[in-house]
Nucleic acid binder design. Structure first.
Lengths: 209, 209
DNA sequence: TTGCGCAAATGCATACTTGCAGTGATGCAT
DNA sequence: ATGCATCACTGCAAGTATGCATTTGCGCAA
């Protein structure tokens, strides 16, 4: 049996406040509408001050969807092989993971209803993509620096810059999906939906080079 | 002799209001600082109401820098050859033009001082990049649709989607420059600074495909 | 030239967002 | 147990941003 980590009181309270704010925001938004749900109401319903709300979420929409800051799991990063041939595909998948674990946290059914009714909520995905790119860039940069082939850099650019552009390239199919008309903000991006975009990318690259 | 187009009074006044707001914003920001310059003060100095300010600029920073909405010049679009071999390079240069004419409008020396003192002002460049990409995407989409090779689409995607991804790829070297540590927000991006990034892009693409 | 339609400008109300200073509870070392 | 440092939370104030209804004055045609 694994003993549950007994969170210190402080941590626990913080998690509770976060949960209360998210719960309040989501349920208020669902039954009275997003624009009709004010930060003041959310805070009141969660039993904290409006000022505290902004200590937990940058913007109202994040509270409604329950978004957390993206985090790069070192274990997943280390699974990347910079010498394998589908490096871009690997990075794309890593990007999706980083951005989506931040996004897809909570209550699926309610998310679906909310986003269906208020598509604007999904606009925040792009922001999280940007943050994910920054994180992954740093990670990949470290990997390249350790690799004999990449460490020397490319065309006068160091491995750090190579990593930055590599991640931008890998981000293209994701941004492409994110801006597609038929993108499903609840399902997010999966291997299934990312695949065709990666293929298109590779095809275009072949066509133009 | 060409007679100067006698702008209707309405148009002229609008241009004057725009100029007054920009002038007030820039000069106030320069001598008392950006954060110390309120929209209220700008509007007062320009002789209009604070509400009117937001009819001209989305955000305070845009007024300080005098940014205009990006516009795609049809003449420049028609100069693109979708069959030439450096299509990505062509699109990149077009993107730069579209985004930069919107940005580099006014008084160079003052821009330099402002951005040197308040680097955060330059963060707005990315937003204008996004708008430029949308415009150019639509344009390129039209071109591809008329071309026999592209019109059929690629890998099950139509020409609009091919255009969208193509423009995203072409945007990579620009975003790369925009996020570089040594990027000069006043000079912007020129053939000179775009060149190396395009080379890096091509090199990476060759390496990974 | 008179009158109508329209766009710019305005006033007002409301909400979002952030910085700062202060307070109390928590966690930790003595 | 005591004292201290830290952190969550709070209240207040200022500023940014937007929607809506109303007024003002330009442009145009009868």
């Amino acid at each position: 049996m694994t003993t549950v980590a007994p969170l210190p009181l402080r941590e626990r309270k913080k998690a509770e406040t976060w949960g209360a704010l998210h719960e309040s925001a989501a349920s208020l938004a669902l039954d009275r509408g997003v624009d009709e749900t004010t930060v003041e109401a959310i805070a009141a319903s969660a039993g904290v001050s409006p000022r505290t709300f902004f200590n937990y979420f940058h913007v109202k929409e994040d509270a409604i969807l329950g978004l957390r800051e993206p985090v790069l799991d070192p274990a997943q990063l280390s699974r990347i092989s910079v010498t394998a041939d589908d490096l871009v595909g690997q990075i794309s998948r890593l990007l999706v993971t980083v951005a989506w674990t931040a996004i897809g946290g909570t209550d699926r059914a309610r998310r679906r209803q909310l986003i269906a009714r208020y598509p604007n909520l999904a606009r925040r995905h792009m922001d999280y993509m940007v943050k994910a790119e920054r994180l992954v860039s740093q990670g990949i940069s470290g990997l390249l620096a350790q690799d004999p082939v990449w460490a020397a850099g490319v065309e006068g650019f160091g491995p750090e810059e190579a990593a930055r552009m590599l991640v931008m390239i890998a981000g293209v199919p994701i941004r492409f999906n994110l801006t597609s008309a038929d993108f499903d903000p609840v399902e997010g991006i999966s291997a299934e939906t990312l695949g065709p975009s990666l293929t298109l990318l590779h095809d275009l690259l072949r066509k133009i080079s």
